[in-house]
Design a protein around this nucleic acid. Structure first.
Length: 361
DNA sequence: AAACTTCTCAACCGCTTGCAT
DNA sequence: TATGCAAGCGGTTGAGAAGTT
């Protein structure tokens, strides 16, 4: 493998492209196709190196490039893919029709990365930043050598995978920092496992999808086959942050004034942002009978009016693959049980927190 | 209004990969 | 197998825009 020759030659122009240069490049490629990039500039009458022409075409002039703001689904997809692929921008771009790797990379560095940091999420590991939690507690020996009790706790959360809305709330609760430290410790490992299962399902997709809709459909099918895991772990806090920021702008607030924006928003399209009572949830999932969870989730699902894509109904999506490492072991749920009437108390519905995602579509 | 700071993103740089010889 | 070249990739830069003081 030899070193690529430097394409810089005297007389070759660098820097921003002029409209005239763009026209020449587009006209030539429309007529002759892309062909050999090294010879293209000369044939097209451009004083540019082939590399510069290729970059200009692939990142800017290509007719199938989608320009403008990234949609909520696109942003969500980027975050999820980045959590498993890392900075493989071209691989991520292959799953986002119309978007270039350069554009995704820029968007990540200028928007998503900063937002994740503000939300307390490490943009590299996609895990909640440990420096924001109680390190001494998280790093206890049991975190490395889990006891049987720890494993039982994790297994107790498996039923949650059937209930996307509960998962969303759990993630939101954890990442917003509203949960107590003890609750965070219990939610964190389960959410990370859920994230890994979902990301694995996405990576299993064929990298070349002609149609975005087809990709999204297959993504949902694969995710369903794995564990019916929704797009929640990252989506929820990000979405909430976006919505609050937009609402803040609409209300002429400073963007940082999130709480004020939140409470001043008008109820729009039926999205119910709920608060999760983690201890009560812990108690609930320890029941052998998941009927209370179903009742819960159906309540939230119907109220949420199908926010976001890929949220499936619990009854049609039995858990299949979450926690493969533990699913073969006999799962026992012990401990206290809660009556169905407790379910209503688990959510503190706040109509003032109603959010509209249409701004991001 | 001006000066300064921060943000955005197109474009570049240099390295890696894949293929032909 | 070694070499040369083209293309692709990810990190970085810097000019202009936007925001702040």
């Amino acid at each position: 493998m030899g070193r690529a020759p430097c394409c810089e030659k005297s007389g070759l122009k660098k820097g921003p492209w002029t409209p005239e240069e763009d026209d020449k490049l587009v006209a030539y490629i429309k007529k002759h196709g892309q062909g050999n990039w090294r010879t293209l500039p000369k044939n097209a009458g451009l004083a540019r190196c082939g590399k510069s022409c290729r970059l200009r075409w692939t990142n800017y002039l290509r007719p199938d490039i989608k320009r403008g703001r990234f949609s909520f689904e696109e942003e969500e997809t980027i975050i999820q893919l980045h959590s498993i692929l890392g900075n493989k921008w071209s691989a991520i771009a292959a799953r986002l029709p119309g978007r270039t790797d350069n554009e995704i990379k820029n968007y990540w560095n200028t928007h998503i990365r900063k937002r994740l940091l503000r939300m307390g999420i490490d943009p590299v590991t996609h895990a909640p930043r440990l420096d924001l939690l109680d390190l001494s507690a998280l790093l206890k020996p049991a975190a490395y050598y889990p006891t049987q009790a720890d494993l039982d706790t994790l297994r107790a959360f498996e039923p949650l995978a059937n209930y996307p809305d509960l998962l969303r709330l759990a993630a939101s609760t954890l990442l917003s920092g509203s949960a107590a430290i003890g609750d965070q410790q219990q939610l964190l490992p389960w959410l990370l496992q859920a994230q890994m299962a979902q990301a694995a399902a996405m990576v299993a997709q064929p990298p070349q999808q002609a149609e975005h809709n087809q990709f999204m459909q297959q993504q949902q099918q694969a995710a369903g086959a794995a564990c019916q895991m929704p797009d929640l772990v990252h989506a929820s806090p990000t979405t909430v942050a976006q919505q609050l920021a937009a609402a803040a702008q609409q209300q002429q607030h400073q963007p940082q004034d999130m709480s004020a924006a939140c409470h001043s928003m008008q109820p729009p399209t039926g999205y119910v942002d709920s608060q999760l009572d983690v201890p009560a949830l812990m108690q609930m999932v320890q029941q052998p009978d998941a009927s209370n969870l179903q009742q819960w989730s159906s309540t939230v699902t119907s109220s949420n009016n199908n926010v976001g894509s890929g949220v499936s109904t619990p009854s049609s999506s039995p858990i299949a693959g979450l926690n493969h490492s533990t699913s073969t072991a006999a799962t026992t749920y012990g401990g206290a049980s809660a009556s169905s009437s407790d379910a209503a108390a688990l959510f503190n519905m706040q109509l003032s927190d109603l959010l509209d995602v249409s701004d991001y579509m």
